[in-house]
Nucleic acid binder design. Sequence first.
DNA 1: ATCGTATGTTACCACTTAGTAAAGTAACCA
DNA 2: TGGTTACTTTACTAAGTGGTAACATACGAT
Lengths: 111, 111
Amino acid sequence: MSTDHLSLALSALAHPVRRDILANLMSGERTVTELADPFDMTGPAITKHLKVLERAGLIERSRDAQRRPCKLRADPFREIQALLRVYQPFWDESFDKLDILLAKEGNRVEE
Amino acid sequence: MSTDHLSLALSALAHPVRRDILANLMSGERTVTELADPFDMTGPAITKHLKVLERAGLIERSRDAQRRPCKLRADPFREIQALLRVYQPFWDESFDKLDILLAKEGNRVEE
DNA sequence: ATCGTATGTTACCACTTAGTAAAGTAACCA
DNA sequence: TGGTTACTTTACTAAGTGGTAACATACGAT
């Protein structure tokens, strides 16, 4: 596997279970058991998925007694968004529209 | 591996060589040899990468005598963009700004 | 102390991925 | 016909993934 940030983030997202886990985390911090609950899957499998997400920087884990709550991190999403922007002229028919709108307001999406 | 569209596209993008290939294709159709040229890698390796990209719908291949030109396809990029939009409220500080801008203009980015 | 709950670790499996070398196919060219 | 170019297929290897079962550890409650 490739070990650069972007590759790690993209391959972490390339699994429906992990995308579901991230979606569940959108409503706030969750423990491993809470995250595992919706899935018909053993504990270690979930632990592994969380490890992949953590390595990709998509989640952050803390400590609360014997619990290891997880919460979302934003940075990799921004990196992916930046990647898409590279290819954007070739796929997004609304690209120009957006660009014009932002130019009109005198500011930009990035930075 | 997961075989849904989105997972295929994301894991295809999760390799720097394949992202470079796609970037090279932004300037138009390219043959396999042209695509292989910048890389220090054997032909079969490139063929495999192209197969991954094709299966993910990110490229399309045609026939021109003994050449097999490749060109970009847009759909998977749009699917990924849609995915990011799901998580967007949690990572893009410019989300609200964009939303307000588009609402002002009385139209939307999607569809 | 000990029991149950929460979580992690280890060892193992089948399968996939990313690469190689070598041989095979297919179209053009002389 | 025979050679060259363009690309693919096959067979192999090493490493990674996604899952399991079984065991280990940490904490809170009783």
